[in-house]
């Protein structure tokens, strides 16, 4: 149902997104049967393709040419895919989007080479863009994403974090790549600097809102909807916004500390998840996500009226309200 809604939002770009999808298939084509299979396995598992969508929509504020802008949209999705393959090794994840992960289906080393392969394909692809600024933006983003992931591991299992730590982490983990998708779409299509900056900030705020919602859904969704146990973030030691709102509460503190020991039974996990769902932490987190969403919408208010502007607004609103 949710995917249907998203498809409807993308309907104006259907033909261009179909082209991107075909290009993604071509891009992951490898002379190695194994890498081919592993990459296609990942590609066919689906995904929202929000990064290519933002690239295309942002490009509409400049001189839009799909044959040019595809060289940005495709690599951004590939970089996201490559990071997922490696993240599954880091998180020791067996399932993603209801499918076995590459590391589960083959092994960690194959996942490493698959990620390296996809990442290199992304760079090969984006070198069709000759504008050095585009490469500087993307490479900076990639380094920052890694720094964010390193910090995430350092912060794991540390219950006493500040909200500021969380926001810095999700900025690097999610918001930067969406911000760069928007900025790159604008820069490569020749949009003016002011417009590119509005779009970059729009992407940043949407990304922040998106990640907070993602962290909320990890608690509020069912195991089936998630394709993994609800509350996985906490079990894996990732302290997300709802948990930060509860960490000082006497009713929750001991249970949260216990959850981080990794000794929780299934029943205990379900009971704790249920209590968190019923607490005010979810509403407080939603309010913050919504605040970021409003900031995002304010950024695009400054842009000239167009179908692309309406689409950006609709997608941002959808992402802020999504239930899965």
């Amino acid at each position: 149902m949710e995917k249907m809604k998203l498809k409807m939002l993308y309907s104006d770009m259907r033909s261009d997104l179909d082209l991107i999808e075909k290009e993604l298939e071509i891009a992951v084509n490898s002379s190695s049967d194994l890498l081919n299979e592993a990459s296609l396995h990942l590609l066919h598992a689906g995904g929202k393709r929000i990064r290519p969508v933002f690239v295309l929509l942002a490009a509409k504020f400049g001189h839009y040419q799909i044959e040019l802008i595809k060289h940005v949209a495709v690599p951004l999705e590939l970089i996201h895919m490559a990071s997922l393959v490696h993240d599954d090794v880091i998180d020791d994840s067996e399932m993603r989007r209801g499918q076995p992960t590459v590391k589960a289906q083959w092994n960690n080393r194959v996942a490493m080479y698959t990620g390296d392969f996809i990442f290199a394909r992304a760079l090969e692809y984006i070198t069709n863009i000759q504008n050095p600024k585009a490469h500087q933006i993307l490479s900076y983003t990639m380094v920052e994403i890694c720094v964010g992931e390193i910090i995430q591991i350092e912060d794991k299992f540390k219950l006493d974090q500040r909200l500021q730590d969380y926001f810095r982490r999700i900025k690097r983990k999610t918001a930067l790549l969406i911000a760069s998708s928007c900025q790159l779409g604008a820069v490569v299509s020749g949009a003016d600097e002011k417009t590119a900056n509005h779009l970059k900030r729009f992407g940043y705020y949407v990304g922040m809102s998106f990640q907070i919602i993602d962290d909320i859904l990890d608690i509020t969704s069912t195991d089936k909807e998630l394709g993994k146990p609800a509350g996985s973030d906490l079990i894996q030691g990732n302290i997300t916004l709802p948990i930060l709102f509860l960490k000082d509460s006497p009713e929750f503190r001991a249970d949260l500390e216990y959850a981080l020991t990794g000794n929780m039974t299934e029943d205990e996990r379900l009971a704790l998840v249920k209590r968190i769902r019923e607490s005010d932490a979810i509403e407080k987190s939603k309010a913050i996500s919504n605040r970021y969403l409003q900031k995002a919408l304010k950024e695009i208010d400054a842009l000239p009226a167009s179908l692309a502007k309406k689409s950006l607004r609709d997608i941002a609103l959808y992402m802020g309200k999504r239930k899965f």
């Binding site: 990620g115 990442f119 380094v143 890694c146």
Partner: peptide
């Protein structure tokens, strides 16, 4: 962190 070291170095070479 070794996985991330590899990714970090890849990002740096590109940068």
């Amino acid at each position: 962190l070794t996985v991330l070291a590899g990714d970090y170095y890849s990002g740096l070479y590109y940068q």
